[in-house]
Design a protein around this nucleic acid. Structure first.
Length: 217
DNA sequence: AAAACGGGGGC
DNA sequence: GCCCCAGTTTT
């Protein structure tokens, strides 16, 4: 199998994994501002927690002007308990002014997105894909770990993995890579306790273990 | 009880 | 490159 086949296969099965991932769709409005905020909240945070926090925040905040009215501590209370909620609250409080400096709207280029507080390469790629439908691949730790384990790339950094994957996959699959492999990495191919017994790739994967004490899929 | 975790930023 | 931010989940 090649990486293209795997993404195709897993993207179909991803919703059958135990405790299906909460669709980002539920908080996704395609409004770039909300997508940006929700994506910032989502780093190092599970979808369900992100989703709840985003709902609370969007109840009060529809646009940068609304956000500007809130204090850091108010934002903290609204977004708790996403990972690093204090850092994120500080960054969100700075977001309205940061947006003004890049033209007043949520930017649709990597270069401009990286100027925003709390937005690094991974978050920027997700925003490009989620908000603007641009081809982008977010290589987080799961994506990096899995594609290296499978041997499709041999890379040290996420950036190298991103470049390699872009050469291996057709454009239309780029947006599938992160959501598919993150869900797979969380629910099936977990770093310390892979559930190979219920993995659709077990007969192919050379890392597959024979015994799987945790299988109760 | 300790380590890891879907990342980013400051040094 | 190293270390911090933080609560939650996993080991």
């Amino acid at each position: 199998m090649d990486i293209e086949q795997i993404i195709n296969l897993l993207s179909k099965e991803v919703n059958t994994f135990q405790a299906p991932i909460k669709d980002f769709e539920k908080i996704q409005t395609k409004e770039p501002f909300k997508v940006l905020v929700a994506t910032i909240l989502s780093s190092r945070t599970k979808d369900e927690v992100t989703s709840q926090a985003a709902k609370r925040l969007f109840d009060r905040v529809k646009n940068p002007e609304d956000l500007e009215q809130l204090s850091v501590s108010e934002i903290e209370k609204l977004i708790y308990p996403v990972g690093f909620y204090r850092v994120k609250a500080r960054n969100l409080a700075r977001l309205p002014s940061a947006l003004k400096e890049v033209g007043g709207k949520v930017p649709d280029t990597m270069e401009e997105l990286l100027k925003l507080p709390g937005v690094g390469r991974k978050t920027a790629n997700l925003v490009l894909s989620r908000a603007f439908g641009k081809p982008a691949i977010c290589v987080d730790t799961h994506v990096h770990r899995l594609v290296n384990m499978w041997g499709f790339v041999h890379s040290k950094t996420p950036e190298q993995t991103e470049d390699a994957l872009k050469k291996l996959l057709p454009l239309h699959l780029w947006s599938q890579v992160n959501p598919t492999l993150v869900a797979f990495g969380q629910k099936v191919c977990k770093p310390k306790s892979p559930r190979c017994t219920c993995c659709p790739l077990s007969s192919w994967c050379s890392s597959s273990t024979i015994d799987d004490p945790n299988s109760s899929f």
